[in-house]
C-alpha cells in the first residue's frame, strides 16, 4: 500500500457528533508525483517512488534534474519509496492524492521530532530535580548512575543527558477525522511528530 508525503500545518480543534472537542492536526498531504516505478523484473523488487514539495532547479543536482525530467515533473524536495507486493499499477509522472487513503480509518505518521539539543535528565527523561535549599548543589545534576563494585559499570540504557529530539519518530494508529480532497488536507486526531511546516510521511495503519 502506498502512502503520501505531507507537511504538518498546525493544530486546531473540532467537535464530534456528541459535542466533544477533538484535537486535530492538519496535514497537507500531497499531491505527490510518481517519480519512479520499480518492478521485480527490472529492479529486483516492486516499489513506487513518490515526491512532494517544489524545489528550484538551480538548487537541484544535475543527476536529480535528470531523474525528475524522466518523470516529466519539476524538481521535488522530498522523495520516498513505498514497497508493494504486486506489480505497481502506477504510471511515471502520475499524481497521487488523498485517494490512497480511501476507506482507511487510521494512519501512521512519521516525522522528525523538534530538536532540543543536548538536554539534561530532567528535560530528556522527565526526572525530578534535586533539592534547591539547605546548601544543596545538585539542583539539576544527574545523581547516581548505578551500584558500587558489583556490577562496577553503568547498566545499559541508563537515562543520561544527551541529544534530545531531531530524531525520526512514528506515531501509529492516528484516527482520520476528515479528508479534504479539494485542498489536499488530512485531519488526524491528536498530535504528530515535528514542528509546523515539517515534512511528514503518512501511511495506512496495519
Amino acid at each position: 500500500m502506498i502512502g503520501l508525503i505531507g507537511k504538518k500545518l498546525g493544530m486546531t480543534r473540532r467537535f464530534d457528533d456528541e459535542g466533544r472537542s477533538v484535537p486535530v492536526t492538519v496535514i497537507q498531504a500531497g499531491p505527490c508525483v510518481v517519480t519512479q516505478v520499480k518492478t521485480a523484473q527490472h529492479d529486483g523488487y516492486n516499489a513506487v517512488q513518490v515526491g512532494f514539495g517544489a524545489k528550484k532547479a538551480k538548487n537541484t543536482p544535475l543527476p536529480m534534474q535528470g531523474h525528475f525530467r524522466k518523470a516529466g515533473c519539476d524538481p521535488l524536495r522530498t522523495l520516498c519509496e513505498y514497497r508493494l507486493d504486486a506489480k505497481p499499477e502506477f504510471a511515471l509522472g502520475q499524481t497521487v492524492g488523498l485517494d490512497v487513503f480511501e476507506g482507511a480509518e487510521k494512519v501512521d505518521v512519521t516525522g522528525t521530532t523538534r530538536g532540543r539539543g543536548f538536554s539534561g535528565r530532567i528535560r530528556r527523561h522527565g526526572q525530578q530535580r534535586g533539592p534547591a535549599a539547605h546548601g544543596s548543589k545538585n539542583v539539576r545534576e544527574s545523581g547516581g548512575t548505578g551500584m558500587h563494585e558489583e556490577p562496577g559499570r553503568v547498566l545499559p540504557g541508563h537515562p543520561m543527558p544527551g541529544q534530545y529530539g531531531n530524531k525520526q519518530e512514528t506515531k501509529k494508529n492516528l484516527k482520520i477525522v476528515a479528508i479534504d480532497k479539494e485542498r489536499n488536507l488530512l485531519l488526524v486526531r491528536g498530535s504528530v511528530p515535528g514542528h509546523r511546516n515539517g515534512i511528514v510521511f503518512i501511511r495506512r495503519s496495519r
Binding site: L9, T12, L185
Partner: peptide, 10 residues
C-alpha cells in the same frame, strides 16, 4: 500556508 489553518479555525 497558514491561511489554510486559519480557514479551518475561523
Amino acid at each position: 500556508m497558514s491561511n489554510v489553518i486559519d480557514s479551518l479555525r475561523y
